[in-house]
Simulated scan of single mutants.
Amino acid sequence: MDITPIPIDKTDPNVKEFQRIDTNKDDQLTFTEFILSDRPFLEHQSRRFHGFDLNEDGVVTKNEYEEYFKKLEKHKRRSDQFFSKFNRERRDPFQASFFDSFPKNPQEESRELSGPMHNPSMVLL
């Protein structure tokens, strides 16, 4: 009985990974191809950096870095306060009176933490 061989490049995950990284398909990896092979991670890091760069000057100062996390913590406290009140009072959060004890201008805080970096689960420390 004859068995048809399966080419290794169709089954070996390392070979498939090499082929994926080799964007110009010349069977060689340049440093650029290698570094850019993890595009989702690079895009994530770019979003993180720009989230920290509060004045958008292309540089993240220590102050901007610290300020970002202070705002993030403030946002988290407000969220915790909301859910704590909701659980404590077991009231319908869709009734306007539920929100009476919260600050009236939450959009200002939302603008401060706009973009994909305001989600703490996305922040890699």
Rank of each mutant, 00 (worst) to 15 (best):
Q95H: 14
T11Q: 10
K71F: 03
R78I: 05
Q81T: 01
L125M: 13
R20G: 08
V123A: 11
G115P: 15
R91S: 14
K62A: 15
P7E: 12
S97W: 14
R90V: 03
Y65F: 15
Q45K: 13
P116L: 14
S110T: 03
I6A: 06
L124D: 15
P103W: 04
N87K: 09
F82C: 02
V123P: 04
D22M: 05
I3H: 12
F34H: 11
E33S: 06
F83Q: 11
I6G: 03
H50D: 08
P40I: 01
E89C: 08
S110P: 03
N55D: 12
H44S: 05
T30W: 06
Y65N: 08
T11Y: 10
L36R: 09
G51I: 03
Q81V: 01
I35K: 12
T32I: 09
A96Y: 10
E89P: 09
V123W: 04
T11D: 08
D9M: 09
M117G: 02
F86K: 14
D26G: 01
K76Y: 12
L42G: 13
D27Y: 09
S79D: 03
N105F: 10
T4A: 08
F31H: 12
D100K: 03
P40T: 05
D2A: 15
K70C: 02
D38F: 11
F52C: 01
E67G: 11
F99P: 00
E66W: 11
G115K: 02
D12S: 14
F41Y: 07
L124N: 14
E17S: 11
N14W: 07
K70R: 00
E56Q: 11
G58P: 13
Q19S: 15
V15F: 15
M117Q: 08
D38Y: 04
A96R: 05
P116I: 00
S37G: 15
D27S: 09
P116N: 05
L42W: 09
D80Y: 07
F94K: 06
H75G: 09
R88Y: 03
V123N: 06
G58Y: 04
L42D: 07
L72F: 02
K10M: 11
P106I: 02
T23E: 03
